[in-house]
Structure formats: C-alpha cells, structure tokens
Simulated assay, not measured.
Amino acid sequence: MCRWLAYSGSPIVLEELLYKPAHSLIDQSLHARMGVETTNGDGFGIGWYPADHGEPDHVEEPAVFRGIGPAWSDRNLRELAHCVRSPLFVAHIRASTGTAVQETNCHPFRFQRWLWLHNGAIHDFPRLKRDLVLAVDDSLYPSIEGSTDSELMFYLALTFGLRDDVPGAVERMAGFVETTAARHGVADPLQMTVAVSEGEQLWAFRYSSAHASRSLFFSTSVQALRALHPDNPVLRRASEDTRVIVSEPLGDLPGAWNPVPESSYAVVREGRDAIRAFRPRAGAV
C-alpha cells in the first residue's frame, strides 16, 4: 500500500509538510505506523498548483514531479520542496502492490487540470483488468501511461463524469469495479483512499468493499487548534482556511487530527469543509 497527504490553504513551502513535521511524509516512507508496509520505497510523487493559481495568466495545469527511487534519499525532491510554494498540493509515497516500479506508475496522476492519487488496490486486478480497461472512454484511453489499478480508477472516474460531478463519478467508478468483480466471482474487490483536485477544491474518499478501509485523517480547524495550543508557532503562521488530509497523522499534537469515517468523503474549498456518505453506484458505462 502507500501513504499520502493533501494540503489546501495559504501558500506554503512544500517542505513544511514533507520534511519538517516529526512524523512527516518522508519519515513515513521509512517508518509508517498505520500502513500495511512499514517502508514505502517504490517511488514517490508530488503535484502542485502554482501560488498564482486563479490569477490572470496563471498556469492551467498543475506541475508534477515523480521519481522511482525512495523518497527519503532523493536530493532533487529535497531541493524542490525547499523552494516551491503552493496553496494546494498533494504528495504520495508508493509501496507497489505488484505493478512495475516505473515513473509512469508513480502518483499523482494528472489529466489536464486534475490530480488523482490513491492508496489501496483492486483485488485480483489482472483478472479484472481487461473488462475495466475496455470501459474507459475512447477519447481518454490514449492518455493512460502506466499499468496500475490506481491510474485506471482515475480514467474510469473521468469516463463517469469526474469533471462535472466528482463524488458521483467516484461512486460510479467504485460501483462499476464491484459489479465487474462480481461477474468474475471476486469478493471484496476495492480498497481505496483517494485524493482528487482541480486546483480549487479538494476531495478525499475513504472506502472499501469489505468496510475495513485504510486509515485517513483530516486536520482540525486552525482556529480550534490555536485555542488548544496558543504558543505553537506553526499554528500562528497558518491561515484560517488551512486543511490537511493525511494517511496517518504527521505528529502527536493533541486534538489536531480526526479520522475520516468509514465509507465517506470530505470536500474542502477555502476552509469550508464537509464530510458526506460515500455509496458506490452500480451500473454500466
């Protein structure tokens, strides 16, 4: 499996979350506490929207940087994280579930202005892969670069209307995977925590067919945390609309982290966030 984080708020330097916290994502690449594997060294990736996103002449597509080595020893990642600032970014460290360790299999995956990353797996994926791939819209299929179930889930969600209705498209994707698996006699096929963004909003999903999903947490509001920890310098710098979603907490600050409930999703936009139920929708393409 994998570990990931997603950030939305005032622009910060990426290393503030990737390297500086006590249990940062880089620390988790070696010492994950809640993942299936302790070590996540099969590649990494970050995707970010520029600090001027939304301004005239801003870059429409997010930037992506990926590598196939372990994140903890990549000097280019450290250099990049030291100088890149962003108001919305995602980061991922990979532990392969069987597909090749190659750059095109590293998260996040990008299509136009959309970013997608995933922790989990489609059970018995080689058995289901042909039926799932054939369901991808013809116009989207040429953009698939890798061989992972994660990327295929992204393109299925795009096929099901991700650009118009994110929660609905992910629910239809999950339902289609489960329906396809049922035809092949594969039980409990889907395990996922997913982050997706188009640069303005951030969605995070937690679901598994067996209702025993991998861990996922969201940060408490900055205002509430300042009341709990008035002397914390990091909290004094953070904006009111700052939110972080993580596979596992970045530290042990009391009151800072809340579990995303089973079979639910969170949506964040400019500090206004909500958690809603996630229900796969069965159906054909």
Rank of each mutant, 00 (worst) to 15 (best):
M173A: 00
M173G: 00
A174F: 12
G175V: 02
F176M: 15
V177P: 10
V177F: 01
V177L: 05
V177C: 10
E178F: 02
E178H: 08
E178R: 11
E178S: 12
T179Y: 11
T179G: 11
T180E: 12
T180F: 10
A182Q: 13
H184A: 09
G185H: 04
G185K: 07
V186W: 01
V186E: 07
V186S: 07
V186H: 03
A187E: 14
A187T: 14
A187V: 14
D188K: 10
L190K: 08
L190D: 06
Q191I: 03
Q191A: 05
Q191S: 11
T193Y: 09
T193I: 11
T193Q: 10
T193A: 00
A195S: 12
A195D: 00
V196F: 03
V196Q: 01
S197V: 06
E198K: 15
E198N: 15
E200W: 13
E200I: 12
E200C: 14
Q201W: 06
Q201F: 10
Q201N: 10
W203G: 04
A204D: 07
A204L: 12
F205D: 00
R206V: 06
Y207K: 01
S209W: 03
S209A: 01
S209H: 05
A210V: 05
H211W: 10
A212I: 09
A212M: 13
A212V: 13
A212Q: 15
S213W: 03
R214M: 15
S215D: 10
F217I: 09
F217V: 00
S219D: 06
T220R: 14
S221H: 06
V222P: 11
V222Y: 01
V222N: 06
A224M: 11
A224P: 06
L225N: 00
L225A: 08
L225E: 07
L228H: 00
L228N: 00
L228V: 03
D231R: 10
D231I: 01
N232M: 11
N232E: 15
P233Y: 02
P233Q: 08
P233A: 11
V234L: 14
L235H: 04
L235G: 06
R236C: 11
R236A: 15
R236D: 14
R236G: 09
R237P: 04
A238M: 13
S239H: 02
E240L: 12
E240T: 13
D241V: 03
D241I: 06
D241Y: 10
D241C: 04
T242V: 14
R243T: 14
R243W: 04
I245H: 08
S247C: 10
S247K: 03
E248S: 02
P249M: 05
P249C: 04
L250E: 03
L250R: 04
G251L: 09
D252E: 15
L253N: 07
L253T: 12
P254V: 04
P254S: 04
G255Y: 04
A256I: 05
A256L: 09
W257S: 00
W257F: 05
N258H: 14
N258V: 14
N258G: 08
P259L: 07
V260E: 03
V260L: 13
V260K: 02
V260D: 03
V260G: 09
V260W: 07
V260Y: 06
P261T: 10
P261Y: 07
E262P: 02
E262S: 15
S263W: 09
S263G: 08
S263L: 05
S264M: 08
Y265I: 01
Y265N: 07
A266C: 15
V267E: 12
V268M: 13
V268W: 00
V268G: 02
R269T: 14
R269P: 07
R269S: 15
E270I: 14
